[in-house]
Design a protein around this nucleic acid. Structure first.
Lengths: 180, 180
DNA sequence: TGCTCCATGTAATTAGTTACATGATTTA
DNA sequence: TAAATCATGTAACTAATTACATGGAGCA
């Protein structure tokens, strides 16, 4: 079983969802296409780590809702305690930084401004998500209650916001160096 | 030609280097193994974007030093002006966050402390690199001179330092929530 | 009329990892 | 004496991307 399989299990553990839901939600932390996810879900089901229920919809295609089993929870606990691979990054923007000195200043500014724009857009989406989460938050669970399935997603979003802000500030610093 | 090929070209543009050097230097921004890099370098050479020189060494294996050609620089300028793919991330640590609520608090603390340790070690390496770069910096190039081949690498390291610090602060905040 | 969203699946291709292969020198 | 560093390459395998395939609803 590969890391993506554990990741899918992990997302399902928080709330039952369809393959389509997973493709949307996992992309922030693990780039994966639906063509990879659907076969893995079938495997997880064959292994008895998840079970699914056909949900018939009118006006929309039918879907399968996957739920974690007790065997799946046990598998997750083992994975959690095991070693964690360092994050894999492939960043074209970073690679472009090495040829800065070959291109004119305007092209560099365009690149950084475009990056800053992306980061701003992402920050907006993240702050929107934060607000949505506050509404979902039940009053019986305090902010620091780890046993709530929303605790993980919440601190992950906070992490993304911090990192995106730091990166945006860096963009502004660089643009200033280039006389903006 | 794929993104990694452009990345290799980009690194070579700053200073001529061997395949081995590239495997060491590119890993911070683009995960790649030597088994991927050596064949791509041969391709770049066949296409006339780089040229190489055999360097015989005593006490060490011989090596090939690759240098960018004018055609290579032209190729880089085109790549630079074109669209930039968003960074690809595959982060096992982030995936583990979704199953926090299933495991005991001690296991969570272990995971976050381990992450914090990794970040601290990386920050040390980055700050060491910053010092090394200051020594390489020639006095005729001011800090904000983009036409110096070291400008790109320098601002990239500054970016990494900012992001790693933000992530480390996040770890401390989470550990505090968990009563550290 | 064409596009996006919803929803699932498979096939073909490309990219990436792990393993195999060699070998001298230095460090723990 | 075992492991790490330097240095390059290929082969086998696994993972990931792109393309193929279907189809109704809602929007511009």
């Amino acid at each position: 079983m590969n890391t993506l399989s554990y990741g899918l299990l992990s997302l399902i553990s928080g709330s039952p969802c369809s393959g389509y839901d997973l493709t949307q939600r996992i992309q922030f932390f693990w780039n994966a296409n639906h063509s990879q996810i659907y076969p893995l879900l079938s495997q997880l089901e064959e292994m008895g780590l998840v079970s699914f229920e056909h949900v018939l919809q009118k006006d929309k295609p039918d879907k399968k809702i996957y739920t974690i089993t007790e065997a799946g929870r046990e598998e997750l606990r083992n994975w959690f305690a095991g070693p964690t691979d360092p994050p894999v990054v492939r960043d074209e923007f970073a690679l472009k930084m090495f040829s800065l000195w070959l291109v004119d200043q305007e092209a560099v500014k365009r690149l950084i401004r475009e990056k800053a724009g992306m980061l701003e857009a992402k920050l907006c989406r993240l702050e929107k998500r934060t607000k949505e989460m506050r509404l979902l938050q039940k009053p019986e669970h305090p902010d620091f209650d780890m046993s709530c399935p929303l605790f993980g997603p919440r601190i992950l979003i906070e992490k993304s916001i911090s990192l995106n802000r730091a990166e945006l500030e860096w963009c502004h610093r660089v643009l200033q160096m280039l006389g903006e």
